[in-house]
């Protein structure tokens, strides 16, 4: 079902819940991986994903369609993830370096972790990036968003996003080559 149709059905009391179920089924996996790339842990990702859909449920009736539904969902998921990370950092009083190390160790703790595989090296490399670059890299590389769509999600100019993505890509490649 197209997003436009989901919105129409959501705004009718009789079809509201069914439309929301369709929306969740359509976006749960994409949003899950977007969040997980930032948060790493599955359980934390699950919590943030639930919070994201709660926010969507509450706010969708007031969605003014000034952006695409798809980018609006990513914006909520991104904000929820960043709030979660901020809270976690505040509670544990961790620096950026400490946080990077914790996230890398969580990745390495995965039972399927294989340090020789490029996919795992890529995951570790992403954790070395600053938060904003990590988001930009994920949206472009994994979610394959255009710069205009990324601009809708992050509220940043396309020029700045291009520069950020290029920096991130170079850092990731360098890390993989050198590790």
């Amino acid at each position: 079902m197209e997003d436009q149709e989901i919105l129409i059905q959501f705004n009718q009391a009789a079809t509201k819940e069914a439309a929301f179920t369709i929306l969740v089924a359509k976006y749960r996996e994409r949003l899950y991986w977007h969040i997980r790339r930032l948060i790493v842990e599955h359980d934390d990702t699950d919590d943030v994903l639930q919070n994201t859909f709660l926010k969507v449920w509450k706010a969708l009736a007031g969605f003014k369609e000034q952006s695409q539904l798809y980018t609006w969902l990513y914006r909520i998921a991104t904000n929820e993830s960043l709030s979660f990370i901020e809270q976690k950092q505040r509670k544990s009083a961790m620096s950026f370096d400490d946080m990077t190390e914790v996230l890398s160790n969580q990745l390495k703790a995965d039972s399927y972790f294989d340090s020789n595989r490029l996919e795992w090296k890529l995951q570790i490399a992403i954790q070395q990036l600053p938060e904003k670059q990590r988001i930009v890299f994920g949206l472009r590389y994994f979610d394959e968003m255009s710069y205009d769509e990324m601009s809708e999600v992050l509220g940043t100019s396309t020029g700045a996003l291009k520069a950020s993505f290029h920096h991130a890509v170079k850092k990731v490649e360098d890390f993989i080559k050198n590790n």
Binding site: Q50, L107, H166
Partner: peptide
């Protein structure tokens, strides 16, 4: 800018509990 990254699969490597996405329901 970084041709190496085009050689890497984008399929997620981290583990997810079995049937997590099938069973996932937003608890509104």
């Amino acid at each position: 800018i970084a041709p190496l990254l085009n050689q890497i699969s984008k399929i997620p490597v981290q583990q997810v509990p079995a049937d997590y996405f099938k069973q996932f329901k937003a608890q509104v």
